[in-house]
Design a protein around this nucleic acid. Sequence first.
DNA 1: AAGGTTGTCAACCGCTAGGTG
DNA 2: ACACCTAGCGGTTGACAACCT
Length: 275
Amino acid sequence: MGRPPCCDNGVGVKKGPWTPEEDIVLVSYIQQHGPGNWRSVPENTGLMRCSKSCRLRWTNYLRPGIKRGNFTPHEEGIIIHLQALLGNKWAAIASYLPQRTDNDIKNYWNTHLKKKVKRLQQPADSFQTAPTSNAVTSPNYYSPSSSSHHSFQGMQPMNSYPNTTCTSAPSNNETATISNLFQTWPTATANCKITMQDFQEEQDAAAASIVCKDQTATGDVSKSSALEMMVTPVMGASTATFSLLEEWLLNDMPGQAMDGLMGLSAGCCADPIMF
DNA sequence: AAGGTTGTCAACCGCTAGGTG
DNA sequence: ACACCTAGCGGTTGACAACCT
């Protein structure tokens, strides 16, 4: 037998919007015990919520350091660019915007950016026959260089950010109360998920070998393929691989950075441990 | 002013990988 | 080795607000 069943399908489990009281109970508990072991949260707090709901509420709303409200052009640029590179890997994208949650980014993409990108691509599509499945390869792809080049300055993965702080003003008394509860909270970063690393780890050696095969077969590598190479899973390699990604994103001359990537990818095929 | 439409976003649902007993 | 659970992810839904007619 495995573990005892969780509360997820239990009777009397409350659903729907969280009340300020529930938020305070949850925050108080996590402040004392730290995030994690979500199963014990409803049991120990008396919250009539399932553990999953508690975790979600924490990660998407109550976690310290979360920035709410309008996205800056800087953040928009990062999201658009990374979405084109990574696809709908919201957690991976969120790792580059430590103050934003994956849910927030996903919502913002679906409600704002998707249309925005579509609009920007539309005029070109009318006379372009190139496939649009990989927007990066399209010369008409929304480019940070044309709208907000330096919006990418300073972009780096979350785990290299300094401690995050809550920059948004409390929207109401509840938020202020919860913020006060966290005045002694050590660091926000320590409690964030290192999802980019997770994403890297997801890409196993098989994926890398497929990409390398593609490369040798076609002699050409798209940016998305290059990204797959970059995310070859070698623990401790994330710094090197994503420094290149960042350089690539930061530069308006992808070809130059790509040269470096090509070199690395060749190395990765020959000996993945190299990077 | 009232009703309808559209936009926003918090929360839920379903699935998967990895962990545990 | 197996069955089951947890944590995490991406997609979807539904309530509410803002806007339009």
